[in-house]
């Protein structure tokens, strides 16, 4: 079905078509090139996340991964121990009962 010529759709399409034909003003190329050159000549700041002293003292990435690994290992060991004790405790009660009970 064809869109009626005076509908909002056709007006919108016309508006877009005209807007797409809009051309930008010309820019000053030499000044752009000068700005790019000046930026290229500018000394680069140290992009490390912290000051060099801190970085030397504490290498953050290895430290972070070590902490994560330690936390995971601790979690696994702690869970395992709790599970073990939970298994053992009834046996400990039975043992205590067989020896006359706890004092």
């Amino acid at each position: 079905m064809k869109t009626p010529p005076d509908s909002p759709d056709s007006r919108w399409e016309n508006l877009l078509r005209r807007a797409q034909a809009d051309q930008p003003p010309a820019l000053d190329l030499p000044s752009l090139q000068r700005a790019a050159r000046a930026e290229a000549r500018r000394p680069r700041p140290d992009e490390r996340p912290a000051s060099p002293a801190w970085t030397a003292l504490l290498p953050f990435r290895p430290l972070l991964s070590t902490c994560l690994a330690g936390t995971c290992a601790f979690g696994v060991l702690a869970s395992w121990q709790v599970w073990e004790w939970w298994q053992v405790l009834p046996w400990a009660q039975l043992l205590a009962a067989s020896q006359g009970g706890a004092p």
Binding site: L15, L16, R18, A19, Q20, A21, D22, Q23
Partner: peptide
């Protein structure tokens, strides 16, 4: 006309 349409959008 194109500039005006572009401004409107």
């Amino acid at each position: 006309a194109a500039r005006a349409a572009s401004e409107e959008v």
